[in-house]
Design a binder for these strands. Sequence first.
DNA 1: CTGAAAGCGCTTACAG
DNA 2: CTGAAAGCGCTTACAG
Lengths: 357, 357
Amino acid sequence: MIIDPATSKPPSGAPRRTAATLLDVARAAGVSKASASRALDPASQYVSPELRARVVEAANRLGYQPNASARATTTGTAAVVVVLVSDIRDPYNAEIVHGVIEQANRAGLVATFAGTDSAIDDEIRVVRMMRGLRPHAMILTGARSGSTVSRTSLQEELARYTSDDGRVVIAGDDELPFDTVVVPRRVGAAALVAALFDLGYRSPAMILPEHDSVAAREWEAGVVEGARGLGLRFGYGAAVRAPVSRDGGYEAAKRLLEDRPEEIDVVLAASDTMAIGAMSAMRDAGMTPGVEIGVAGFDDTVGAEDMTPGLTSVDLSLARAGAAAVELALLRPEEERRTVPLEARVVVRGTTPPRPA
Amino acid sequence: MIIDPATSKPPSGAPRRTAATLLDVARAAGVSKASASRALDPASQYVSPELRARVVEAANRLGYQPNASARATTTGTAAVVVVLVSDIRDPYNAEIVHGVIEQANRAGLVATFAGTDSAIDDEIRVVRMMRGLRPHAMILTGARSGSTVSRTSLQEELARYTSDDGRVVIAGDDELPFDTVVVPRRVGAAALVAALFDLGYRSPAMILPEHDSVAAREWEAGVVEGARGLGLRFGYGAAVRAPVSRDGGYEAAKRLLEDRPEEIDVVLAASDTMAIGAMSAMRDAGMTPGVEIGVAGFDDTVGAEDMTPGLTSVDLSLARAGAAAVELALLRPEEERRTVPLEARVVVRGTTPPRPA
DNA sequence: CTGAAAGCGCTTACAG
DNA sequence: CTGAAAGCGCTTACAG
């Protein structure tokens, strides 16, 4: 359960011995609050050097740090960017989040996070609650699942926020009418199929995410279009759906191998995690990944290169995604939806050696 | 470079069409600001049900969300907990951070993050800047490296914060005079050595982190003490230092194998990452991990079980660490330093099969 | 139970 | 260049 921080009270404790305030600094320096404020603002002109020096000295002596909340209520916006992540432990998300933190800090913004379990209704609640922070922007990562009704509600809640001059950036796999950093899933999937074709693979099978999502659809579209363009076809039963997890990949590969092992020469999984599960399934079936049948994943998350053999995958340059999202959030808002594409790079490793013809 | 958000100005844009305020709600409901405030505070008694109903209705209609900054400047503390992480992509940190987010949300707190590159001087700057948020607590994860002088400065900066009634919690491997969630590194390392002894291993070698840190020392102490207790000794050169990374582990293992492969029957690495590198080095030397020589890691990060063979490791229940840190932060401050221990669990997998005597 | 008023810590026109 | 004053959006005694 999530408690609204704006509604719940902060845990009470001993009476707060308060931190130094601007007034304390002003007094210590023997100037007015207004002057102290200006002296501490590097952008402010019209401050005599001596006054500034005196104030800065006093501030340092007192360990003064301006109260960010007070400043935010004065100025109207907080120097905050909110990031909604489903699960930070997912390396895919961690990579994006890392980029956000770096870039936000560089821009003088504080990055705040909220988990959402990737359930859309959860996300609506979180967006609403985070609006209370009056953040400069909200960045949504990953894909979300939920009914059309829920999607509409989320869109409305976000629109409410943007109508108050907030910025929304979608960093990931979703089609929402806001500025978006586009994860090159479709392009990357097609490029992967092409690379495998060049290596001599002709009979691919797919392990698809069980739940529908934009990410899943994009990947599938990339694979199917890529294959079609090369004259390849998927046989009946050569596409199975499974949960996006190691175990999901394991089970899916098992089914694939049981049903029609002879007609498949390479298994494409929609994520590295599933591909890793698939590799285990092959081993348990007495095969060696890359020998009888090739395997390829997607995302090139940390670890793919440390499998044995190394897992062929597609690097989505996610490290850039987070930074790009912050950059988009910093631009002035525009009428039309803006889009920043990332690059996809196929990384061929041991699980898909050149296939003898 | 990090820009102080308290000093830098928020990026300016179009004039802000402001969000609904309490006054808007009060007017819409035909009551005073004071009454509206009370009606929206679930904890407030002395509000007539009808008045409350009217206010709540108006608030919903206007999509009102209280301004968290204004509330914070009124009450003196923000419902925020700040987390300092070196690198969120490290699964070790991600696990802790995940626990923090979950538990913080449950407690109605917002979690804010700042990266620190694990350099102590960076951390000092960040602590200082984050003090401006007047957060309820600061949680420091991981180990930090830096001079004694720097450590003292960090301690001073943190003390400054606690003297203003802030709470500091160390979630990880460090000895600082604040409430601490203790990562059971020493206990876990000793338990690992004992487990390996039971499996028949008698000649261990160590891959240690290159840089000194509390984490490194604790792990080393656990291994050495555990070994000594069992009458085992480390031969000369059976302990090598390397960067905490896959490549560091690779290089270290390579050296170990070149120098004295015949005297070693198991390699203990201070982290799973290094252990994974070590496994690659063995393979490149024509060996199979677990066959000629065993390998064990530490942390049991995601992925260890998916190696081939599975990597023996020690699970530190880090998922609990983040939650425990938040719980500590919520307790009322006390004079003496409090300590919450986590549990260590040895997980034996394929890289350390029972060794024939 | 309800409202008028003061106050939290800042910033920023507005006068000097 | 400097200061007095108003105002940001809230909460909370203090009177009724």
